[in-house]
Structures are given as C-alpha cells and as structure tokens.
Amino acid sequence: MGLDDAATKPHEALAAHLAAKLGDVDALIRARMASRHAPRIPEVTAHLVEAGGKRLRPMLTLAAADLCGYAGDHDVRLAATVEFIHTATLLHDDVVDESASRRGRPTANLLWDNKSSVLVGDYLFARAFQLMVETESLRVLDILSDAAATIAEGEVLQLSTARDLATTEALYLQVVRGKTAALFSAATQVGGVIAGAPERRIAALHDYGDALGIAFQIVDDLLDYQGDAKSTGKNVGDDFRERKVTLPVIRAMAQADEGERAFWRRTIEKGDQQDGDLDRALDILHARGALDATRAAAIAWVAEARGALGVLPAHPVRDMLDHLADYVFARLT
C-alpha cells in the first residue's frame, strides 16, 4: 500500500506521541486491578494485561481526545476503561472458546481455571464502570455501557451462528460489529465526547472506529488461514479446527461445488476432521478466490475508515490515525 519503513508500524508512532498519557493509563490500570481481599484478581489480570498487547483501543481514545484538543485527565480514565472492557471480554472468550493460548502464552483459564477467568472478567467490568462514572458524563456512560451490551450480544450471536454454514455475510458482519467493532467505535467516540467536540466530528470518530474494527477482525480471520504463528500469536488453521464460519469460508461456500460443500459440512458442521483436511481447506480457499475476496473486503473497510477522517481537522494525530488504518491491512504483508 505504498507505506515506507517509518509508516509500517504507525501504532508505534502513535504510542510514542501518546507516551506520557499511556504511562498514566498503565499506572491507573495497575492501581485499579488490585484487590485487598482476592490476590488472584491481580494475578490473573496481570497475566493478560502485561502480555505485550499493543494497547490499540486505549490509544484510540487518547488519540481522539488529543485530536479534539482535550487537555484534562478524563481521557486517561476512559482509556483504562476501554482496556478493562477489552481484557474482560478476552478472559470470557477464552473460556467460551476453550482456548489454550493467546499472544503465544497460555491462557488464564488454562493456568488457573474457568471459574477464575469468568469471575475476574466480571470484576474488570465492574472496575470499568467505576472509571466511567468518575468522568461524570452521562453520555460517556451511555456509549460505553451500550458497547459492553453490544459486545455481549455479538458473542452470543456468534455462538448461535457457530458451525452453521448457512451463515450469511450480513450476519457475519453483524457478529463482527458486535464482538470487535463496537469497542473500537466507542473508544474513538468517547474521546471526542470528553473533549466537547462538535457532533459532526464525534460522528466521524465513531465511523472511523467502526470501520477500523471491522477491517481489523476481517484481517484477523484472514490471518488465520495465511498468517505466521510468531507474529499473530495463534496457529494457522485455529479457526478451521474450532469450526468457526468466518468470511473466508463464507466466500468459499458461495462458490462451492457439491464436493466442496460436502467437505465443509463434514469438517465444519459435523466436526469430522482428518489429517490433511486443513491443507484441502486451504486449497479450496485459494481455488475459489475466497482469500483474495476477503482481502478485498478488508481493503474496502480500511478505505472506509480513512474516508471518515476527512471530516476531522488537520492535525498530526489525524495523520497517525490514517496510517493506523493502513497498518491494520499491512499486517497481512
């Protein structure tokens, strides 16, 4: 996409620009994940929070507030809120998916147990709501509480569509908007709200986060079939082995002949997977152009995110957010 070396990792440029605020966010996260009565809470939380994630979502909140000229400290509280919500959902997701690794490390449910993961996730949700209230903004509370509910709805919808080859692209997009994009769009939107930005700019920030989140998840689903375990933190084919119906499979099913439909029904719907099935799945995905079609969808959503930024004022942070949209897709290269 024509990115030079300096722009291939724009999340690092954004992190450097926001370094002081991010330090405050990390300090607040450490302080609020403490518990006087249950030492397992900070143990479990620290395992995930300190696992080397990019802090992308809290950076979006800080960046949006900075772009809109905010000079207070509520952006730090909201960034920590967003990270707590994200971490809570990861703890719950790993239990639901029965995952054994995340970001190349054992999951909390594997190291401790499912009960600890669920309850610590609940604790982090409670902490997130405490931080929201401290901003004394009813609108912020409305946006983030709605996002939390939407995330839960998205996860439940994903359960109901799991292993169902009749899942449409529209339904897939609804799941993605719920489980991933909702927090991206809320993260950017509240940054503008806390800064008192004009409604047009707040709407643009929401639209940027929404499109960025959708592109991010589509790329994640594509990386599952053509990524590198060292960089993605998961093995190629994990979604196939877990029988998840993601966009590459949906696109392949749309072009499948009867033999290929039988293959997908056996491996995804019935769960009868044999040696060599992943290789055959990859062959079908390539032959039917499903991976290229999924890549094109990701590019389109990246363009949508970049287009939303046009409403926002000229600012170095706006340029960083523009490059960040490119980087979401550049993870494929």
Rank of each mutant, 00 (worst) to 15 (best):
V236H: 03
H286V: 15
R266V: 09
A305N: 04
V236S: 05
A128I: 04
I299W: 13
H11K: 13
R57C: 09
V133C: 08
R318D: 11
G53V: 07
R306Y: 03
G154V: 04
D24A: 15
D238T: 15
L144C: 11
L3Q: 12
W112A: 06
D5S: 11
A252K: 05
V317Y: 02
A305F: 04
V311L: 07
L111P: 00
A71M: 00
V190R: 06
L62G: 08
P198M: 10
I218P: 02
V311S: 08
L285R: 08
V156R: 02
F184R: 01
H74R: 12
A281D: 09
A186R: 01
L312C: 06
E83L: 06
L212W: 02
R331C: 05
K230A: 12
V249M: 12
V44K: 04
Q226C: 12
R295V: 00
V245W: 01
D257C: 09
K270L: 14
Q189W: 01
A100G: 13
V219P: 01
A19H: 14
D26V: 00
T267V: 15
E155N: 08
K9T: 11
W264A: 06
A204K: 04
A149Y: 07
L56N: 03
D275E: 15
P42G: 09
T294Y: 04
S116F: 00
A300F: 07
T107Q: 03
L312M: 07
A303R: 14
T89Y: 11
R36K: 13
A34Q: 13
A262L: 11
Q274I: 07
K270A: 15
T232V: 09
L205G: 01
D146P: 02
T180M: 02
A80Q: 03
S117E: 02
T107G: 00
S160G: 00
R251W: 08
G52E: 10
M132G: 06
H323F: 11
L124Q: 05
A195E: 05
A34T: 11
A128M: 04
A16S: 15
R163Q: 09
E83W: 03
G154Q: 03
G53S: 08
D4W: 02
R127N: 07
A148Y: 03
H323S: 13
T107D: 00
G69Q: 08
G121Y: 05
A256D: 13
L223H: 02
A182H: 01
G104T: 07
V302N: 06
L78A: 03
I29R: 06
M59K: 14
D221T: 01
G209Y: 05
F263T: 06
R318Q: 15
V25T: 10
A296E: 14
V95R: 05
H47K: 05
T161C: 14
P313L: 14
D24G: 15
L157C: 05
L247Y: 07
L157V: 04
T61W: 09
A303N: 13
H11L: 12
D75H: 12
G178V: 06
Q130E: 15
D146H: 13
K115S: 13
Y208V: 01
E269Y: 02
L3V: 14
S101G: 00
G213F: 03
D5G: 08
A15C: 06
Q274A: 14
D66A: 14
D97V: 08
Q226E: 10
A300N: 09
V156S: 05
G237S: 10
V76Y: 06
V311Q: 08
T188H: 07
A152T: 15
V317T: 14
V49L: 15
T246Q: 09
